[in-house]
Amino acid sequence: MGEPKDEREQFEEELIGLDPHDPETKAFAEHLDRMKRQRPGYTVEGYLEGVQDFADSANRTTGHQRLVAVIVVGLILLGVLLTIWFALGDIIAVIF
């Protein structure tokens, strides 16, 4: 199969003429890596990597994009809490 290329070799064509030690160039190479990364489909690991990417992206943003990310996470947590609340209510109703 071959060994995986390091980051510099992998995106050599996209980074022609750019300083490899420049922080912006490194950030761009990381962005390209995230865009081309293949995740395993329909596995827990694949879903968790997606959540990790979302969390990393939300931590890098500022202003109104960060607010939207916080609202999305809050709505997800609210949905989980309501589901647990209604499930506990049904369980208590069945027991008593």
Results as ranks from 00 to 15, higher is better:
V44W: 05
V44E: 08
V44K: 03
G46Q: 04
G46M: 03
G46L: 07
G46N: 02
G46C: 06
G46D: 12
Y47F: 08
L48M: 13
L48N: 04
E49Q: 10
E49A: 01
G50L: 05
V51I: 12
V51N: 06
Q52V: 08
Q52R: 13
Q52T: 06
Q52D: 06
D53Q: 10
F54Q: 10
A55T: 14
A55P: 00
A55M: 09
A55R: 11
A55E: 01
A55C: 13
A55K: 08
S57Q: 14
S57L: 09
N59T: 08
N59D: 14
N59M: 10
T61P: 00
T62S: 14
T62H: 12
T62R: 14
G63H: 04
G63Y: 04
H64Q: 14
H64K: 15
H64Y: 15
Q65T: 09
Q65I: 11
Q65G: 12
Q65V: 12
R66T: 05
R66Q: 01
R66W: 02
L67H: 03
V68H: 15
V68S: 12
V68D: 15
V68N: 07
A69F: 03
V70I: 05
V70W: 07
I71S: 07
I71W: 02
I71P: 00
V72R: 08
V72E: 09
V73W: 11
V73Y: 06
V73K: 14
V73E: 11
G74W: 08
L75G: 04
L75Y: 15
L75F: 14
I76P: 01
I76L: 14
I76M: 13
I76H: 12
I76Q: 02
L77Q: 08
L78G: 05
G79Q: 07
G79C: 15
G79K: 02
V80W: 05
V80D: 10
V80Q: 10
V80R: 12
V80N: 07
V80G: 00
V80K: 15
L81C: 09
L81G: 07
L81N: 06
L81T: 06
L81H: 10
L82G: 02
T83C: 03
T83K: 03
I84C: 05
I84S: 01
I84H: 04
I84R: 05
W85H: 04
W85G: 00
W85R: 04
